[in-house]
Design a protein around this nucleic acid. Structure first.
Length: 595
RNA sequence: GCACUCGUAGCUCAGCUGGAUAGAGUACUCGGCUACGAACCGAGCGGUCGGUGGUUCGAAUCCACCCGAGUGCACCA
């Protein structure tokens, strides 16, 4: 029963929901509770605080806001909960509503409501579309990509995909390091190789070896070291010869990175490369502007921005050098130039940085300076989303047996080989080419999932065996769940892409699966906001687990299943397969028909 | 010294703006295939949430202090 006010507001709010969102159950319940709470005379600041039902006995969702509101109104909480229920309209949505414990309201959704919701076509999200710049991967081109580049590349790519899925305009920016001091040394080395008649591509066949060579050369030969230092200056001031050598080096190194991206199934291509050197011509201006604004001052010969907002307890401001005493620029300078480019030219509403947690202070400094200099208006969101380090099974940073850095290229090869070996241990009826193709999807998927499924900000322990065990919360388990579903459709000789039938929910396992399927977009919303992809992994794992229970208890194409039931279950299967594939695709992981 | 991050089952990890008896996986012990793919499912075992105080109807979650680990702190990126 609704009061007049409640009814009006109810229509208003409900109208908005149905107009502009896909079915988001939590949002729907939240709105209905808000209306009921207002009708019950509860101040609008009080939230219904909806949560998933912790346990089966607590319902599908629970509203926990009555207790806080009761305290505010100095009323017995259960009494207030009852008053909310009296004003609550969940006709056709909830089947059971009960007050439990000190004042929890447990909501049991109706089977028919869930079934109908699954039948509705998915509307595209109509929320505000933003232009989002996503800065990720950004390897240093002086060396080969190594495992340290994995997290930024994988997590950043997932967020780019998630935001695109939501309809935002995503601009990927690969801020490659191609302009550091080491490049003097590298092009001096390259010059010698070319002088001996070697081809650039050959000399640079192994960037890691090449780097070590030139470093050794630099340390051992003072004359070479002097030339290297001179080349840095000449390069940055536009000397044609140095620029030519540099370009040869960069071309090879960029190509190497692009190969890795392709192998990793990451959506970064040449068009997303916006390397440090691209901002070279703007660095003078950035510093000049900072000086003119009085933000950068001379200190010990360098131009430094002192940030009082990042001062320590003793009041010492945090210094950030934007120009060296010798006149050279640092990465802080090019980061500021990039910031301005992203705001002014790319028109970003939101700029996301997926960069190692060790850069946190640096990012804070860059953001603070960008704000103070008004390079970035307050309407633009600047977000550093840090991540931890990948550790080996010994709990120390992941290295080769000999203690060296692990090249990403080698790492990927090993993952695929391990996947192939495991496949051969199982009984697979795939032929040789199929095994190769599937092993690639499994190996790469396993690596990415191992990384994505851990809370981003924590260090994580990487363990080949755990990741490749194909048991528990791993990519292969999800891929397996997918193949099992597709197998049902093969057996029934039905095309899951075009199949459509009404859903009828009877068994408990069917309800659990239906509810889980409907929660997909709630999860995606959250990830788009907080940039923690592990919640998507957790969701997909739960979905697959719930499906497996359904699979055990609810026969589909076995003998004796009535056609109506069979079709309903096939529809649940088709939706599960589609949701798994969609979710994995957002993680950059492929599925396959058989494995 | 200062700053940031983190201490949850033997191990690897979840725990959403404070909510009910802290959850998964793994390991270990049982049970389930004349197969919609057992690379699976089910059950059991396993916890003083680093410690001590505080805030309140209610704390793994918020605050303070301590212990322990990692990382970063002006001319590399």
């Amino acid at each position: 029963m609704l009061s007049v006010t409640g009814n009006l507001q109810s229509e208003l709010i409900i109208g908005q929901i149905e107009e502009n969102t896909i079915m988001r159950i939590k949002e729907l319940l939240n709105q209905r509770f808000l209306v009921a709470m207002q009708a019950a005379g509860i101040p609008s600041e009080c939230s219904p605080t909806l949560a998933l039902g912790g346990k089966a006995q607590f319902g599908d969702y629970q509203a926990n806001g009555a207790m806080a509101a009761a305290k505010r109104l100095a009323m017995p909480p259960r009494e207030l909960a009852q008053k909310i229920l009296d004003n609550l309209d969940l006709d056709g949505i909830a089947e059971t509503l009960e007050i439990a414990g000190p004042g929890f309201i447990n909501i049991g959704l109706s089977n028919a409501f869930l079934a109908d919701s699954l039948g509705e076509p998915k509307a595209g999200p109509a929320r505000d579309q933003q232009t989002v710049v996503v800065d990720y991967s950004s390897p240093n081109l002086a060396k080969e990509m190594h495992v340290g580049h994995l997290r930024t590349t994988i997590i950043g790519d997932t967020l780019a995909r998630v935001l695109e899925y939501q309809g935002h305009e995503v601009i990927r920016q690969n801020h490659m390091g191609d302009w550091g001091t080491q490049f003097g040394m590298l092009i001096a080395e390259l010059e010698e190789h070319l002088g001996e008649g070697e081809q650039a591509a050959l000399a640079l066949n192994d960037l890691e070896v090449f780097y070590q060579q030139s470093k050794k050369h630099f340390d051992a030969d003072p004359e070479f070291a002097d030339r290297a230092r001179a080349y840095v200056v000449k390069l940055q001031s536009g000397d044609q010869h140095c620029r030519g050598l540099w370009q040869k080096f960069i071309t090879v190194s960029v190509a190497h990175s692009l190969e890795i991206y392709q192998e990793l199934n990451v959506g970064l291509t040449e068009e997303h490369v916006k390397a440090e050197s691209a901002y070279n011509d703007d660095l003078d201006t950035v510093v000049k502007d900072l000086v003119d604004l009085g933000l950068a001052v001379e200190s010990e010969g360098a131009k430094v921005v002192f940030l009082a907002e990042l001062a320590d307890k003793n009041g010492n401001p945090s210094p950030m050098i934007v120009q060296k005493s010798g006149g050279g620029f640092l990465y802080a300078t090019s980061d500021l130039a990039a910031l301005r480019h992203r705001v002014n030219t790319l028109k970003a509403d939101r700029i996301l940085y997926f960069i190692d947690a060790r850069q946190s202070l640096h990012m804070k400094q860059v953001f603070a300076t960008g704000r103070k200099a008004q390079f970035v208006p307050p309407t633009v969101s600047l977000e550093h989303h840090p991540f931890g380090t990948m550790m080996g099974p010994d709990g120390k940073p992941f290295k080769t047996r000999t203690g060296g850095t692990v090249k990403l290229a080698d790492f990927l090869v090993e993952a695929i080989e391990r996947a192939e070996r495991l496949m051969r241990e199982k009984n697979t009826d795939l032929n040789e080419t199929e095994i190769k193709a599937v092993a690639r999807k499994i190996g790469i998927g396993a690596i990415k999932y191992a990384d994505l499924s851990i809370t981003r900000t924590n260090d994580y322990v990487f363990d080949w065996d755990a990741m490749m065990s194909f048991d528990g919360n791993t990519a292969p388990y999800l891929q397996y769940a997918y193949t099992r579903i597709r197998s049902i459709f093969r057996k029934a000789d039905i095309d899951p892409e075009t199949f459509s039938a009404p859903i009828e929910i009877v068994a408990a396992e069917e309800k659990t699966l239906a509810l889980k399927l409907l929660q997909f977009d709630e999860v995606i919303d959250q990830i788009a906001a907080d940039c923690y992809p592990h919640t998507l992994c957790a969701y997909l794992y739960e979905l697959a687990s719930v499906y497996m229970s359904f699979y055990e208890h609810c026969p589909v194409v076995k003998a004796g299943v009535p056609e109506k039931t069979q079709h309903s279950r096939l529809q649940l299967c088709a939706l599960t397969a589609a949701t798994l594939a969609q979710g994995l695709d957002l993680l950059g992981i492929d599925v396959m028909e058989k494995m």
